[in-house]
C-alpha cells in the first residue's frame, strides 16, 4: 500500500524493516513498531493514514504471532539490547571504513541505517546521551560523505 505523504517521516524506517524481514526479523519488527507509534503521532485522523496504520498494525500482530517464542520479541528489555547492539555494529563498521579512508555506498548506507535504528531505540524509552550523539554523528556523516562522492570530492 502506498505510504500517504503525511507519513513520509517513517518511510525509511519501513524500508529498513523490509530489508530485514529475512535477514533479521527482530529488527524488522521493531522498525515497524517505531513506524506505527510515530505514524499515530503524525496523523491517525485522515482516512488514508488510518487505513495505512491499520494495515501496519495487522502486519505487526502477524509478526508477533510468528516470532512470539523469540525472547527479543516477548521481552522488550531483550529487544532493546538486540536493536542497540545491531545499530552499534552498523555504526562501528561504517566508522572503521571512514577512518580507513574507504568511502563507498555501503558505508554511507551503514551510517544512515545506524541512525534510523537509533531512532527505533526510542520505542524502549529515552535515548541515552551517547546514543543521541551517535545518531547525530551517523546522520551527518552519511549526508556529508554522500554529498562529497556526488560532487567528486574526497571526504576529509
Amino acid at each position: 500500500m502506498a505510504l500517504p505523504a503525511q507519513l513520509k517521516a517513517i518511510q525509511h524506517h519501513l524500508r529498513t524493516a523490509q530489508e530485514h524481514d529475512k535477514r533479521d526479523p527482530v529488527v524488522a519488527y521493531y522498525c515497524r513498531l517505531y513506524a506505527m507509534q510515530t505514524g499515530m503521532k503524525l496523523d491517525s485522523k485522515t482516512p488514508e493514514c488510518r487505513k495505512f496504520l491499520v494495515k501496519l498494525m495487522d502486519q505487526l500482530e502477524t509478526m508477533k504471532k510468528e516470532l512470539g517464542d523469540n525472547d527479543s520479541i516477548n521481552q522488550e528489555v531483550v529487544g532493546n539490547a538486540h536493536i542497540e547492539n545491531y545499530a552499534l555494529k552498523m555504526f562501528l563498521y561504517a566508522d572503521n571504513e571512514d577512518r580507513a579512508g574507504r568511502f563507498h555506498k555501503n558505508m554511507i548506507k551503514s551510517f544512515y541505517s545506524a541512525s534510523l535504528l537509533l531512532d527505533v531505540l526510542s520505542v524502549f524509552g529515552e535515548l541515552s546521551e551517547e546514543n543521541i550523539q551517535h545518531r547525530k554523528y551517523a546522520r551527518w556523516k552519511a549526508t556529508y560523505i554522500h554529498n562529497c562522492l556526488k560532487n567528486g570530492e574526497t571526504p576529509q
Binding site: L33, M36, Q37, M40, S44, K45, P47, R50, L53, V54, M57, L60, E61, K64, N74, E76
Partner: peptide
Amino acid sequence: TGSVGTSVASAEQDELSQRLAKLRDQI
C-alpha cells in the same frame, strides 16, 4: 455526516491505540 465521520475516525483511533498497547502487553 461530519459528526458521524469524526466519531468513526476517533473510534478507529482508539481501537488502534488499544491494539498497540495489547501488542506491547501493556494492557
